[in-house]
């Protein structure tokens, strides 16, 4: 291996060598990430059926999109989903990470257990949860009935949960438009949180272990209570990690597809379209018979702009509170 060491000695700092090293990864990123994004941008101005461009339509598809009530309702459904998954996932992952950061017995076991859902195939996870949620044969309703609760329709329930809770409290009237996400969507959210939490725990754990021990020691010497230690030491010093987890979870949640495709319906996105998220809407518009890839590309572009602006807003608003 002497040629390798010669190479290293002589050329490692050479910019050309650096560029060469970047080519394989760079090619993958350009071919499979950048080019598709660019082509989606271009295609969104064309009528594209079955892989053939049928003509330039300008902004017509964007105009049609903004007038489609299904587009707006799928956007609303996605917003509910994100608003459900992100805070829940962050809170539970942080809680678990703090607990797993203690010196307890069987630590390795717990860490593995929490990470297991992440490495399990999402398809398998979705199918198993679909069974758990089954109204008649599912495990969840079995336990509900065991403790004397009624059985719920879960993935078949189109009613909003606020409306259902209000109904449970005996209010027969509930304002239209404030019914909240359907119980079916809540079921999907539960699975998403369960599945994604392990990944966030690992990131939080890494963040927690980066906090130097002397701060804790100093806090203890000053007689700080555990709550004070958490809010004055852990929370601020963990903020870069929390910020990263917030950003990545938000972005991934906006792009949810697999669980929706496998767990809901038929027809997918049901009941009553209350689980039809924006990426499934895109898929349906692009790939079903009569679909138009140009239109689907327009949807993708709009989603891209939404995620990008939300990320920028998060950077502006949240990053101010981050201590690097």
């Amino acid at each position: 291996m002497s040629w390798l060491s010669t190479l290293r000695r002589k050329k490692f700092m050479d910019p050309l060598t650096a560029a060469l090293y970047l080519v394989p990864a760079g090619a993958v990123v350009v071919i499979f990430r950048m080019l598709p994004i660019a082509s989606a941008f271009v295609l969104s101005f064309f009528d594209v059926k079955m892989g053939r461009i049928r003509g330039f339509v300008g902004l017509a598809q964007y105009a049609k999109l903004l007038q489609d009530p299904t587009f707006w309702s799928s956007l609303g459904t996605t917003a509910y989903y994100v608003a459900g998954v992100v805070p829940l996932s962050l809170f539970l992952a942080l809680l678990a990470a703090v607990l797993l950061n203690q010196k307890i017995r069987g630590l390795g076991f717990y860490r593995t257990v929490y990470f297991l859902p992440v490495v399990t195939s999402l398809v398998a996870v979705s199918m198993v949860w679909k069974w758990i949620f089954h109204p008649r044969l599912g495990l969840l309703n079995y336990f509900f009935e065991l403790v004397g609760g009624g059985s719920l329709q879960w993935l078949d329930e189109p009613r909003g949960i606020f409306e259902m809770i209000a109904g449970g409290l005996g209010w027969s009237w509930w304002p239209d438009g404030f019914a909240g996400p359907s119980l079916a969507l809540i079921a999907v959210i539960i699975v998403a949180v369960w599945r994604g939490i392990g990944y966030n725990i690992v990131i939080f754990l890494a963040g927690l272990q980066n906090i130097p021990g002397q701060y804790y020691e100093a806090a203890r010497i000053d007689g700080a209570s555990p709550a004070q230690v958490f809010w004055k030491v852990t929370w601020p010093l963990l903020s870069p990690t929390t910020f990263y987890v917030l950003l990545s979870t938000t972005i991934v949640s906006f792009q949810v597809f697999t669980q929706i495709y496998l767990m809901t319906g038929p027809p997918v996105g049901g009941p009553m379209g209350t689980t039809k998220v924006i990426v499934y809407y895109l898929f349906e518009r692009g790939f079903d018979a009569g679909g138009n890839m140009g239109y689907a590309s327009a949807v993708a572009l709009v989603l891209f702009v939404i995620i990008l602006s939300l990320t920028l807003i998060q950077r502006r608003v949240v990053e101010r509170r981050v201590y690097y």
Binding site: M50, G51, V268, F287, D288, A289, G291, M293
Partner: peptide
């Protein structure tokens, strides 16, 4: 399912 069949046919024709 039929839906999957239609999606596969359309994708195969496009390809």
């Amino acid at each position: 399912r039929y839906q999957a069949l239609s999606q596969k046919i359309m994708a195969a024709v496009a390809a």
